[in-house]
Design a protein around this nucleic acid. Structure first.
Lengths: 215, 215
DNA sequence: ACCTGAACACCGTTCAAGT
DNA sequence: ACCTGAACACCGTTCAAGT
């Protein structure tokens, strides 16, 4: 007993260990079952040890969310790079990647987007969040440069795409689409369909002319 | 002491009292601070009393979510009735109402949509959720009858509108749009803008033709 | 500098006992 | 039938004390 304990006593990377332990508990048993004490136990330290590395439980959760934003940003940037000269494909594949990320890590997505954490109060978290948004904005700016979109500025375009795909992803992990969704393949198809609908519109030309949209 | 206590002892509407107490605690102090024991205290009963009326804490939360779905459904149906022969206005005002509901009751919205509750396992909750979705579907069907939309079936149209507006609303309460949003009036404007973008599309005709959307 | 163990004020849930 | 009070196994957080 004492041998392993002594070896780990000042191991220096307890912060990383705690993060890894927390993430694996989160994925295995859900956020409802995640306690700091279990994280500490899983990392092999006392329940008070995490407080050397995180101010409180929320700070640990914020670190997980931050890591989530970094991962998502990397995936979006990878897509942007992969389809450098195909802005419309960039857009669609970015949306696919976004939805797949949320579906693959629903608990982490809830930490990132659920509003429990005060993003603005954590500098590193805010930066990671901003970077993710910036990568999406870049995709839309690219499309604008290619003359892909009508009138609207990239900020508005980003908000529209972001809302659409975020809503779809959150509906999925919120179990609001259980009757609509049955396979991962279908999610890809629906994501593309939604992008197509936003890109081309869902109104007929006649109705768009015949009825005033804004009173 | 005994007078009031005896009067309330078998008051019969403790279930309603508990719900009201829970909702007011939820609104005042957030879901993180909501405990069954505080709810019981606020309702003036012992901490074990709620278990006569709810199987567990989640059952209480499910009842709150159910009530939320009923309220939202009523608001959507009211809009549909108010603009009976203006399907496009129906759509836009429904979206406005949806976003305003979520903004006004973010904690309840999280219960409804956050995925913590297993909606399918609670008959009453599932029914309320289904009714809400049905009211939105009816709005889209109405528009289809009026020839407002191109090709897509009402299910697909509903998914698109729902994703867009749900995403926008959840981004707002998830504090993801703090730099974009500053007033309630602006939310209305942005909601209308997003609806318009989905209705008319964001792609130029040229780009929609020049580049294949689906590989 | 880093971790432990006891302590405190909370939880959700159960259950015998009271009315 | 409905509620109470004690009890249990958990929490997050703090802090003196150990190495």
């Amino acid at each position: 007993m004492s041998e392993k304990k002594l070896a780990n006593y000042h191991h220096g990377n307890l912060k990383e260990e705690l993060l890894k332990a927390a993430i694996s508990l989160l994925i295995e048993h859900g956020s409802g079952a995640l306690s700091l004490r279990k994280v500490a136990k899983k990392a092999g330290v006392s329940h008070a040890a995490p407080y050397r590395h995180f101010n409180n439980k929320n700070a640990l959760l914020a670190a997980i969310a931050q890591q989530g934003f970094v991962t998502l940003e990397a995936q979006i940037s990878l897509i942007a790079q992969k389809f450098y000269d195909l802005p419309q494909k960039q857009l669609i594949e970015t949306c696919v990647v976004y939805v797949e990320f949320v579906m693959q890590s629903p608990e982490i997505a809830q930490l990132m987007f659920g509003g429990v954490l005060d993003i603005a109060s954590d500098k590193a978290l805010l930066e990671a969040s901003d970077n993710t948004l910036a990568s999406l904005l870049r995709v839309m700016q690219k499309g604008s440069q290619y003359g892909l979109y009508i009138k609207h500025d990239p900020q508005a375009l980003t908000l529209a795409v972001r809302s659409l795909i975020h809503g779809f992803a959150m509906l999925i992990i919120g179990n609001q689409l259980s009757s609509t969704i049955d396979s991962e393949q279908q999610v890809r198809i629906l994501t593309r369909m939604l992008c197509e609908m936003l890109l081309r519109g869902i109104a007929t030309n006649e109705s768009a002319i015949n009825e005033k949209l804004i009173e």
